[in-house]
């Protein structure tokens, strides 16, 4: 079975890098030269795609999706039947949690169960207080792990993927306990 892991986030948050770090195949990306100064020469204007093959019949598809509203037509293309979601945010952009909530709601609001993990990047430039962020998110009804990550590092990427798998397992546990 094919499962969809969606990575959403702002320009320069590290979506393409994260997918490149996790993918076993050469990633398909839609990078173009940026017309604005966004701190890097290239930016993604469509979907990044990578894959983790798990043996016969099972694979995780990795979809990187821009977080800007003008790309919402792309959101509609990938938001169905999501297995899990990673939100990547640059540390300096955490001042606007409402925007994050809106974005999260697009992808996980009506799903039966879709775990979400939030990776905060560029924390070497701006430090974060992750509990404060989680409190703000919880007040808005979002209870998700928030980790400082470096999308270039395998350890960080695996931390996010492992957490999503563990959250799925925990959901199974919760269902089992509630049925008992």
């Amino acid at each position: 079975m094919y499962r969809k892991l969606v990575v959403i986030g702002d320009v320069g948050a590290g979506k393409s890098t994260l997918i490149r770090t996790l993918s076993e195949i050469e990633t398909v990306d839609t990078d173009v030269t940026s017309s604005k100064n966004i701190g890097k020469p290239l930016t993604t204007v469509g979907i990044d795609y990578g894959r983790i093959t798990l043996g016969e019949g099972d694979a995780i598809g990795l979809y990187g999706v821009p977080g800007q509203k003008r790309y919402s037509f792309i959101w509609d293309m990938v938001k169905e039947d999501i297995w899990a979601c990673i939100l990547l945010v640059k540390a300096e952009h955490l001042r606007a949690p409402d925007k994050l909530i809106d974005l999260i709601n697009v992808f996980i609001n009506d799903k039966e169960y879709c775990p979400l993990a939030i990776g905060v990047t560029h924390t070497d430039i701006k430090a974060i207080n992750q509990v404060v962020i989680q409190k703000v998110l919880q007040e808005k009804g979002v209870n998700a792990p928030v980790f400082s990550v470096d999308a270039r590092k395998k350890q960080s990427s695996l931390l996010l993927l492992h957490t999503l798998l563990s959250m799925h397992n925990a959901n199974d546990f919760s269902k089992r306990e509630n049925m008992a």
């Binding site: 919880q138 792990p145 928030v146 990550v149 931390l159 563990s166 925990a170 546990f173 919760s174 306990e177």
Partner: peptide, 30 residues
């Protein structure tokens, strides 16, 4: 709240345990 496992050294089993603890109240035996 989840610990920031991006900033501390952790055992991987901590992730599994934290996920369990995040769903509901769980006893030690569970």
């Amino acid at each position: 709240y989840w610990p920031d496992f991006g900033r501390v050294t952790y055992k991987h089993s901590f992730i599994d345990l934290c996920a369990l603890l995040s769903t509901q109240y769980v006893s030690y035996q569970q």
